[in-house]
């Protein structure tokens, strides 16, 4: 496999970086190499942030930024109009969005493979909240792997358990189940 690069768009405090790292870990469990990193600037809660996962079969020697990712993951649909989401688009790109809308309702200027899931509703249903706000980073990983096939849902579950180590077991299992729900409930505007 050539490089597969994923860009997460979220808001400060939503756990985009943790999500990018757990996804990387899931690919590692399947023998892949990965990098996970953020775009560091003046972070603050609520501001648009980006995180990245870079996956490859071989040891990764690239250390520069990601400009034209294979997949974009949007944790907060209010960011869809943000110019950073539109940067580096190319035909065939995967776009996975947390939204109650269906893929056909989302427009992009390229031929994208669009998938949607209402991760916020799942978070509210399952009680995955921090300070009263729905946290969707781990939930969206279930959607990402279904949409892109970059790892199996089983590996994502293992990686979530490892990534959230230290939290109460019940919290961890709730996150795992929520990721499975997102996997099951994903609306795909294309077939793999």
């Amino acid at each position: 496999m050539d490089l597969f690069e994923i860009r997460f768009h979220g808001r400060g405090g939503q756990g985009a970086v943790t999500g990018a790292k757990i996804l990387g870990d899931a690919t590692r469990l399947e023998g892949k190499h990965f990098q996970a990193f953020a775009h560091y600037g003046a972070e603050r809660r609520g501001a648009p942030v980006m995180a990245f996962t870079r996956v490859a079969d071989e040891a990764i020697r690239i250390h520069s930024y990601i400009y034209e990712p294979e997949a974009i993951v949007v944790l907060d649909e209010t960011l869809l109009e943000n110019p950073t989401v539109k940067a580096g688009l190319k035909d065939g790109i995967f776009l996975v969005v947390n939204t109650p809308r269906l893929p056909g309702e989302i427009k992009l200027p390229v031929k994208a493979k669009i998938a949607t899931v209402d991760a916020t509703k799942i978070a509210l249903d399952e009680g995955i909240l921090v300070a009263g706000i729905a946290v969707v980073n781990t939930i969206m990983l279930g959607a990402v792997v279904r949409a892109t096939n970059i790892a199996s849902i089983e590996s994502v579950k293992k990686a979530i358990r490892k990534g959230l180590e230290g939290l109460p077991d019940k919290v961890i299992e709730t996150n795992v189940e929520a990721a499975q729900r997102a996997y099951n409930e994903l609306n795909m505007g294309y077939s793999l």
């Binding site: 790292k21 990387g24 870990d25 590692r28 190499h33 990965f34 990098q35 996970a36 990193f37 953020a38 560091y40 990764i60 250390h63």
Partner: peptide, 12 residues
């Protein structure tokens, strides 16, 4: 080690 490029980048 390079700031962020290594310091804050996860790998195994």
């Amino acid at each position: 080690l390079d700031a962020y490029i290594l310091s804050h980048t996860f790998t195994s």
